[in-house]
């Protein structure tokens, strides 16, 4: 088990390096530079390939601390994935619906989802934060945030 995690990671990184290296070889030529745009990427790709092989065969023993970091319950990973999904939806709707509404909804729902049950405080913050930020950015700093469907 100990070795296998390094093996899996080594293999994954090997694949990434191989793809990168393949793409480096596809780069077009430019005739006027003694060191062309593909030289450094090719070097990096080869270096990463070598390092991934080292990692694969590495005999380093995983420390307990390292192992503890990896030891995450499936359910918790699900929570993180859900938060990422919420961020994704936020970004998706951010420019069409507008900053204030999406941000309010995000803060309220995300905090609720993560176990914040003081709903009055939650509503207060999720309304005040976006409005204050919007006011600072748009009116004081002159940085335009998406207005979306709101009239201001």
């Amino acid at each position: 088990m100990l070795a296998s995690i390094n093996r899996k990671l080594g293999l994954l990184i090997f694949i990434v390096a191989a793809i990168y290296l393949y793409l480096s070889f596809q780069l077009p030529n430019y005739q006027y530079a003694p060191i062309d745009a593909d030289v450094i990427p090719k070097g990096l790709g080869i270096l990463l390939l070598v390092l991934s092989v080292f990692l694969f065969f590495s005999r380093a023993v995983e420390t307990d601390a390292e192992k503890a970091k990896r030891d995450i319950p499936k359910k918790e990973l699900g929570v993180i994935a859900a938060v990422f999904a919420m961020i994704f939806v936020y970004i998706l709707l951010f420019e069409t619906i507008g900053f204030i509404i999406t941000t309010s909804l995000f803060i309220f729902l995300c905090s609720w989802f993560l176990g914040y049950r003081a709903w009055k405080a939650n509503i207060l913050v999720s309304l005040l934060f976006p409005i204050v930020m919007y006011a600072i950015f748009v009116f004081a700093l002159g940085i335009v945030l998406p207005r979306g469907i709101l009239p201001f």
Binding site: F139, G142, I143, P146, F152
Partner: peptide, 8 residues
């Protein structure tokens, strides 16, 4: 701010 306000 007036400029940007009107501009968004």
């Amino acid at each position: 701010s007036a400029l940007t306000f009107a501009g968004c």
